[in-house]
Design a protein around this nucleic acid. Structure first.
Length: 513
RNA sequence: GGCGAUUUAGUGUAGUGGCCUAGCACGCCGCCCUCUCACGGCGGAAACCCGGGUUCGAGUCCCGGAUUCGCUACCA
């Protein structure tokens, strides 16, 4: 790498950042950091019709949440600004003029309707060398008429004049040399007078050049227009500093076909956005990874491995490890189906690494959502409850399913378990159990377990039946951590109260009438 | 339709001509642990797109086909 590595993430603020975009940002970031380079954030808002308020702030917040740091760009400044394309009109105008003056572009007056008509009339109509001679543009109209039309405020666009018969080579770091014939390229619109803004293609090349971008790392959907971009670098005379290209494989739908879309999330039940998004116009809310209980390190780790691997079997990697090991040598070229099931596993893993007290803190809002006031319990109590069940959860909110009984006595009892474990003589045994529990000098798990087990054995009771009836009374179903660990935390009074309640509430299965 | 990219178990992937009777992970199934459900440990089922060729030898190289995906806008 002969020059300073400078990469950019250049999203369009047309809505919330898509998870595929997040991965593109991540790969840019990993590559930049691995090579000691800079990461820029540029906002590509050249389509005034699709601008969505709030999208830019959303993008910045998303990257921040994930730990993808921006060195230069919107939200943090830098020497190559402005970084919002809508604020760079003067710059683009200058370069459009340069292209026009050097005869590499021309002005076209064809209206959208006229273009539509042309497309309808000719099967594979393309605005190119074969057709531009019969359209309304500065190539076909007299110079004074062109000037007259412009002076009259006629809307026009500037089109790039593609010369046919050339083999254009895009050297992609992932895919090698991709060659395409310039004949199949059309005279792309570079600038539209209607909003005095360039299109993506022009703005992109000008900005990447001016911002000294060394590597353009973007989604595969850009590969077909890469030859056009190469031609633009040529037209400007910037070939020597043209960035390297990397076209990343796309993230695909987990089920059927096509690339992962914004709709798939709701359809398949997983988020496709990093953060929850409230659509300003429709009012719709789309779920986000953050609000769904994902840890940013889990999302990053998961996303990094969708299309890249470190070259060995390592899967759990922090951002720093990812940075250390990242390179395009181990990137795949094929699209990856979005395997969100594995994302859950990553979250499970990172949740286990969290400190119990921290997890307890994260659990408090969930308790409130379920009508439990965390203030009624000590932090120590909540922490102990959390530590007992955390091994079985993938999300913080799952803690409720696993630990609810620590905070509220069961109101109902699992019918299947009742049928299996609660017989006619159970109430008597349970009453006896309360007496035994009351008699225990030490109610701790370690001290309570053996005497109770001994009592069951000595009386010839069925271990599984008694213990599960006990569990049923305390938990409400046959699940959960070690029984005596539960009762130790619950305390003697609550334990006995629940057994009495169960005796009172549970009626042994009565034969159906 | 045209152009381009792509192709290893259900999914993500390892594999750069012999070390591949194809490894790892998620998911699935079973066993162990056990008062239960989990966790965990152990084990299992499951893949080289197809057809030619090159080679002593091909998942790995070449050719053809198919597949899938993308692009084909005054959107990015």
């Amino acid at each position: 790498m002969d020059r300073e590595v400078r990469v950019r993430f250049a999203p369009s603020p047309t809505g919330p950042l898509h998870i595929g975009g997040v991965r593109t940002a991540l790969y840019n970031y990993l590559f930049a950091r691995h090579n000691g380079g800079k990461m820029l954030l540029r906002i590509e808002d050249t389509d005034s019709n699709r601008f969505v308020p709030g999208a830019e702030a959303y993008i910045i917040e998303s990257l921040k949440w994930l730990g993808i740091e921006i060195d230069e760009g919107v939200g943090c400044g830098g020497d190559n600004g402005p970084y919002r394309q809508s604020e760079r009109r003067d710059i683009y105008r200058k370069y459009v003029k340069q292209l026009l003056d050097s005869d590499r572009a021309y002005i076209a007056f064809d209206t959208p309707e006229e273009l539509e008509a042309a497309r309808a009339a000719t099967p594979n109509f393309q605005y190119d060398a074969s057709t531009r001679g019969s359209m309304r543009n500065s190539l076909t109209l007299p110079a004074d008429e062109v000037k007259h039309l412009i002076d009259n405020g006629e809307k026009y666009v500037v089109r790039f004049k593609i010369e046919p018969g050339r083999a254009v080579v895009v050297d992609d770091l992932l895919r090698g040399k991709v060659t395409i014939k310039s004949d199949i390229l059309d005279d792309k619109v570079l600038y539209k007078s209607a909003d005095d803004l360039p299109t993506y293609h022009l703005a992109n090349i000008v900005d990447d050049h001016l911002m000294c971008i060394s590597h353009v790392i973007r989604g595969e959907e850009w590969l077909p227009s890469a030859p056009l971009h190469v031609l633009l670098y040529e037209a400007f005379g910037w070939t020597d500093t043209m960035p390297h290209f990397v076209h990343l494989p796309l993230l695909l739908k987990p089920d059927g076909k096509g690339k992962l879309s914004k709709r798939d999330g709701d359809r398949l039940g997983f988020p496709v956005f990093p953060l929850e998004w409230h659509d300003p116009t429709s009012g719709n809310i789309s779920s986000g990874y953050r609000e769904s209980g994902y840890l940013p390190e889990a999302v990053v780790n998961f996303l990094a491995l969708l299309g890249w691997n470190p070259g060995d079997d390592t899967e759990i990697m922090s951002m720093n490890e990812l940075i250390n090991r990242f390179s395009f040598d181990h990137c795949s070229r094929a699209g990856a189906k979005f395997a969100y099931e594995k994302g859950k596993w990553f979250n499970h893993h990172y949740l286990q690494e969290l400190d119990d007290a921290k997890l307890a803190e994260m659990f408090k809002p969930v308790l409130r959502d379920h009508g439990v006031n965390p203030e009624d319990f000590s932090d120590e109590y909540i922490t102990k409850a959390v530590s007992m069940v955390k091994g079985r959860i993938s999300f913080v909110k799952d803690l409720w399913d696993q630990a609810a009984f620590f905070f509220t006595a069961p109101e109902t009892y699992d019918p299947k378990a009742v049928k299996k474990r609660w017989s006619e003589d159970t109430p008597a045994i349970m009453t006896e159990l309360t007496e035994r529990l009351n008699a225990l000098p030490d109610f701790s798990s370690a001290a309570a377990e053996q005497p109770i087990l001994d009592w069951i054995t000595a009386n010839g009771y069925h271990m599984g039946n008694v213990m599960n009836a006990f569990r049923l009374a305390i938990v409400g179903e046959c699940k959960g951590p070690h029984m005596f660990d539960i009762t130790e935390l619950l305390g003697r009074d609550e334990t006995i109260r629940r057994i009495h309640k169960a005796i009172d509430r549970i009626k042994p299965d009565e034969p159906a009438l």
